[in-house]
Simulated scan of single mutants.
Amino acid sequence: MSLWNRVLRIVAIIVLTPVIFLLSCQSRLIYFPNPYRAEYETALRKAKGERIRYTTSQGAQTAFYIPPHSPPSSGLPQTIWLCFAGNGSLALDWLRHTPGWDVHHAYLLIDYPSYGECEGEPTPDRIRESGKAAVAALAAHLQTTPADMHPRLAVLGHSLGSAAALMAADDLDVRRGVLLSPFTTMTDMGRIVLGWPLCHLNRHRFDNQKALGHVAARPGARFVIFHGGDDEVIPVRMGRELSQAHPQVVTFHEIPGGHHNDLLETDAPLIGRAMEGVVAGAQP
């Protein structure tokens, strides 16, 4: 083999190795599924929560319905929040915060495929499928229809969960929501982590700019974004960019000194008040 061919082979190996790695292991860099521990069962019972079981293309899935602390005398709850956690969290992690929020609100806590008690592997399309199926399953559980539930739905998401929340809002025509630490697109995140051009190898193309654009164009849409000023994972400029694209629909709150994973720990009451305002029809 000539020297030139050897050089070309070495260059090809150097170039292709990271490409092959990113294409084959990409899911492991984005999703961090965990199983539930025994203490989660205790928390679920304390919240009088119920498992909502359903099936998707990924197999058996489980979401969790948390009824309002002050249930209505008849009919459906005032508001049902569809809650989506970050990529290293589980649906039942929301239970640390829901007791401090409006007593008339209910919550559907939705895990992703492979998280918690859910089978399968996550991708944007599979997460989207799971969100829609979970709402249909809850409607059956409450002995109503998705159409009857629709006016009461709102979305809540953190980090990756903001993308899941916006996909659910887009698919289900939900026009109210609160987003915590959202990114613009997953490709933009890849540009931060990997640089150009490797960011374009992204196969999990979450696009919050597109989804929020769809939802914000609908009459009566109201959203609030919270983002930590010192977010070390998703830059605060991304949350700001999303809100600035729709100033008549989205209110933006930058939390001074806030980090990626502490907004719910330090600002849960503020977030709870924003949730109340969104569903009450307060102007952003």
Rank of each mutant, 00 (worst) to 15 (best):
A63K: 08
Y65L: 09
Y65I: 08
S70Q: 15
S70K: 13
S70V: 07
P71L: 08
S73E: 13
S74N: 13
P77L: 02
L82S: 05
C83A: 15
F84H: 11
N87A: 15
N87D: 15
L90I: 02
A91L: 01
A91M: 01
L92C: 04
L92I: 10
D93L: 04
L95F: 10
L95M: 14
V103N: 13
V103W: 06
H104L: 07
H104E: 15
H105L: 05
A106T: 06
A106Y: 06
L109K: 07
Y112S: 05
S114E: 09
Y115G: 03
Y115Q: 04
G116W: 00
G116Q: 04
G116S: 03
C118S: 14
P122C: 04
T123K: 06
D125K: 13
D125T: 12
R126Y: 12
R126I: 07
R126P: 03
R128V: 03
R128I: 02
E129Q: 13
E129H: 08
E129L: 03
S130H: 10
S130P: 05
G131I: 03
K132P: 00
A137P: 10
L138P: 13
L138T: 12
H141I: 02
H141L: 05
T144M: 11
T144K: 11
T145R: 05
T145D: 07
T145S: 15
P146Q: 04
P146W: 10
M149D: 00
R152P: 03
R152M: 08
R152E: 10
L153Y: 08
A154P: 09
L156M: 11
G157F: 06
G157S: 06
H158K: 03
H158D: 02
H158L: 12
S159T: 01
S159A: 12
S159K: 00
L160S: 00
L160P: 00
G161Q: 05
S162F: 04
S162V: 04
A163I: 01
A164P: 03
